Amino acid sequence: MLSNGVIFKGDLEGLIIILNDQLEFNSIKEELRDKFIQAGDFFNDDMIVKVKLGRRRLSTEEKKELLKIFRAQGGISVIEFINNDNSFVEAKEEGDTLLVKRTIRSGQTVRFQGNIVILGDVNPGAEVVAEGDIVVMGHFRGIAHAGANGDVDSTISAFRLEPTQLRIANCISRSPDIPPNSPGTPEIAFLKGKYIIIEYLRK
Rank of each mutant, 00 (worst) to 15 (best):
Asn44Lys: 14
Pro124Gln: 10
Ser59Thr: 15
Gln165Arg: 12
Ile178Asn: 07
Ala146Val: 10
Lys9Cys: 04
Gly14Ile: 03
Glu187Asn: 07
Pro124Trp: 05
Pro186Trp: 05
Glu94His: 04
Gly184Trp: 02
Ile104Leu: 08
Lys35Gly: 06
Asn123Arg: 14
Leu58His: 08
Ser154Lys: 04
Asp46Ser: 12
Ser175Trp: 15
Phe25Leu: 05
Gly125His: 08
Met1Leu: 10
Val117Ile: 14
Gly147Val: 03
Ala126Asn: 09
Pro124Lys: 02
Gly95Met: 00
Arg71Met: 03
Leu191Asp: 05
Thr109Asp: 04
Arg56Asp: 05
Leu99Gln: 09
Ala169Phe: 09
Lys50Ser: 11
Glu24Ala: 15
Arg174Leu: 05
Phe81Arg: 06
Ile7Glu: 12
Arg55Gly: 11
Glu31Val: 05
Lys203Glu: 14
Ile196His: 00
Glu90Cys: 07
Leu201Ser: 14
Ser157Gly: 09
Gly10Arg: 07
Glu90Leu: 02
Glu65Thr: 10
Asp121Gly: 05
Arg174Ser: 13
Thr109Pro: 06
Gln165Val: 11
Ile156Trp: 07
Leu53Met: 06
Val136Glu: 00
Ala169Thr: 14
Arg105Tyr: 15
Val51Pro: 07
Glu65Gln: 11
Arg167Thr: 10
Leu161Arg: 04
Lys101Tyr: 08
Lys50Met: 06
Asn115Lys: 09
Val122Arg: 10
Ile143Thr: 11
Ser175Glu: 06
Leu161Pro: 07
Asn83Arg: 08
Gln22Cys: 06
Asn115His: 13
Gly120Asn: 04
Asp177Ile: 14
Val100Asp: 05
His139Glu: 10
Ile198Pro: 01
Asn20Ala: 10
Ser173Pro: 00
Asp153Trp: 14
Glu131His: 13
Leu119Arg: 06
Ile198Asp: 01
Asp21His: 15
Phe36Ile: 00
Leu15Met: 13
Ile82Asp: 03
Met1Arg: 09
Phe140Cys: 01
Phe25Asn: 00
Leu2Gly: 08
Gly150Cys: 08
Asp11Arg: 13
Glu30Asn: 12
Asn170Glu: 13
Ala189Pro: 00
Phe140Pro: 00
Ile18Lys: 14
Ala169Lys: 11
Arg57Met: 04
Asp41Arg: 12
Ala189Lys: 01
Ile143Tyr: 15
Arg202Gln: 10
Ile17Tyr: 11
